[in-house]
Nucleic acid binder design. Structure first.
Lengths: 349, 349
DNA sequence: AGGGCCATGGAGAACGTTTGTAGTATCCTG
DNA sequence: CAGGATACTACAAACGTTCTCCATGGCCCT
């Protein structure tokens, strides 16, 4: 069943049917009604591939994430899908699992399907492989790492704001030995988080000794082994800030085996605010980087680019800020009692 | 850049280029080489929509899940995607969020994109809306709930096997008051799990009092409130079997507030074996229903159907069994000491 | 040497839409 | 009532492939 069948039965030309479906205003309302009637009766659904072929727009957006099984991403996928559906777009999700081969393949698949744009939510892995897409003038949106070129948008994340709040929150609770568990250091976003931590500490005159900087990998296991390192220190930290929530959860899990209580014996702060963060015991204080806002910005960026007549020479930037959300995993540093004290001054030495 | 451009530069016809790309064996190796050279030089990628239009096969499979943010599903999506890529297929994932409207829309989208098959992993919600797909002769694969019709496959889940193991495991640990937290009762799979529990209990002569059957909703919050119900009982259960892992995790979280220790004071068993199950404290004993096997079966079912010359009259069935995986959330019932006793006999009264 | 067969390549018709352009009623204006 | 403007509608050419014929040429066999 195709558009011709509809045309025949409605006694009009295929052109009119097409125009009716696409709601071109010049078609006579009477005729349109007749056409719609036939369409409904026959249960006709237009063939998107034929449409795409002639119109040159596939109405598909690619969405590249690094690991869909990482709890951070499903939320993004969900929101992105919602928006896509709403705008009559389809999405092609792909999860690279940190494998350049898969990334390359994903790019090829997207080009073959002639996607109208691609959102790259891998936080700084292998963007070089996307050269091919750029070359073909496909609108792209990155998180932080996109080059300043036409048709390339960036969502700039203000890591500093949230991390600074977290550090100051801990300092206010009289923590002075604050550890930081980084993410994988080849990841740009992990580097940026660490930098934000360093700056925030320096700003309030707190020293961060190398002991207290331990590298993780953004997984729960990474957090667990990070804590084991930290626990082996002569002087353990009283608070740990983690580069993401999964690490924080790993840290918390490991403290359990050491018989430490959170937050009484140790404060823990995460980053991301994945949904799980509010459900663990105790609920995790963390820096929120809204996944739904991120997805929305990415989608809008693509949509804007698609509808733009002439692309901006240096692409467009969008900003996403982060901010601390307080829950139950932080408390006054051990040994500090809740009395007006001068402890905070010590940090100014 | 299209196939004609390649043809011109390689000094052959478009037919030959097409044959070369599709590796039709009748093309002279010499010529083929020449064609490939041009293709590589120009970075030509065939246009999938044009291909799909003429060949009548889109090489897209739909994948409908109920909630991608539910930790059970991302694993399925990942495995399904892997297989799809491997077979040069694309997937259209959609998450219905238990909304019939979204389901209906998803069906429309899939028909418009002319998918070659759809895997419906919603475990028994709103299959009626898929009538439209069946009508259009699109191969479908369901979990348990598909009707016996041509081109409709089913993955039959053997809930009983795993749940029976779980029940017997608990009985062996001398639990007699075993509670069951169900899923949402409109969900077929939840019903099947409950039925398997009932049967398994009856089989070993253990009574299941109505008190101990509490309905949950497959979420963590549901598990939490389920446990609150159970805790209010005159006689609390010593073990709780849950219809899924999220409920179990909720139960465990809530026991924490009641000052109960798991497994010493209460044994908990989940169902699904989501990845998270092994990372919570204590690691959850649960009935495994392998997500990757499920995804693999679903994909293969679709693939088989697509390649079948004449569809089987009643569709095809595949079987997935479940089985208990022991971790740390179960122990001897409280008050029972690890001595050879006659306690088990009591259940035979 | 001539005929027939096989291997291979090419022409061109689909596939189901959109869309520019040309055509035709209908209506208004003078 | 003629003539032109207006408001639609129909025709037909794309879009980029695949695939069915059909043609060509080389080779072998008698």
């Amino acid at each position: 069943m195709d558009i011709r069948e509809i045309a025949k039965r409605a006694k009009v030309s295929t052109a009119t049917v097409s125009r009716t479906i696409n709601r071109v205003p010049t078609v006579d309302p009477h005729l349109a009604k007749r056409v719609w009637k036939v369409i409904d009766e026959l249960g006709y659904y237009p063939n998107t591939q034929a449409r795409a072929l002639v119109s040159g727009r596939s109405r598909i957006f690619g969405l590249i994430v690094s690991e869909i099984t990482n709890p951070f991403f499903p939320e993004i996928v969900q929101v992105f899908e919602d928006l896509a559906v709403e705008h009559n777009y389809e999405i092609l999700v792909t999860s690279t699992v940190h494998d350049p081969k898969r990334m390359e393949l994903a790019v090829r698949r997207m080009i073959e399907r002639r996607v109208d744009g691609v959102a790259v939510m891998t936080f700084g892995m292998e963007e070089s492989l996307l050269e091919n897409l750029r070359f073909r003038k496909v609108p792209l949106v990155f998180v932080d790492v996109g080059p300043p070129l036409p048709r390339i948008s960036n969502i700039r994340i203000d890591y500093r704001h949230g991390i600074r709040q977290a550090v100051q929150h801990l300092a206010a609770l009289r923590h002075r030995r604050i550890a930081f568990v980084t993410g994988p250091l080849q990841l740009k976003s992990a580097l940026a988080r660490k930098a934000a931590f360093d700056e925030s500490m320096e700003e309030i005159g707190l020293e961060v000794s190398p002991d207290l900087l331990v590298v993780g990998d953004h997984t729960m296991e990474g957090g667990m082994s990070a804590f084991r390192n930290l626990a082996g220190l002569r002087q353990r930290p009283t608070a740990i800030l983690c580069s993401n929530d999964m690490s924080a959860i790993g840290v918390m899990r490991e403290t359990f085996d050491f018989g430490l209580r959170i937050p009484q014996d140790l404060s823990v702060v995460g980053f991301d605010d994945i949904r799980l963060a509010q459900f663990i015991i105790p609920p995790l204080t963390t820096v929120q980087m809204s996944q739904s806002e991120l997805a929305t910005l990415a989608f809008d960026a693509l949509m804007n680019e698609v509808n733009r007549e002439t692309p901006a020479a240096n692409g467009t930037d969008y900003v996403l800020t982060t901010s601390l959300v307080l829950r139950k995993s932080t408390a006054l540093a051990p040994g500090q009692h809740a009395r007006p004290g001068r402890a905070a001054d010590a940090s100014a030495r």
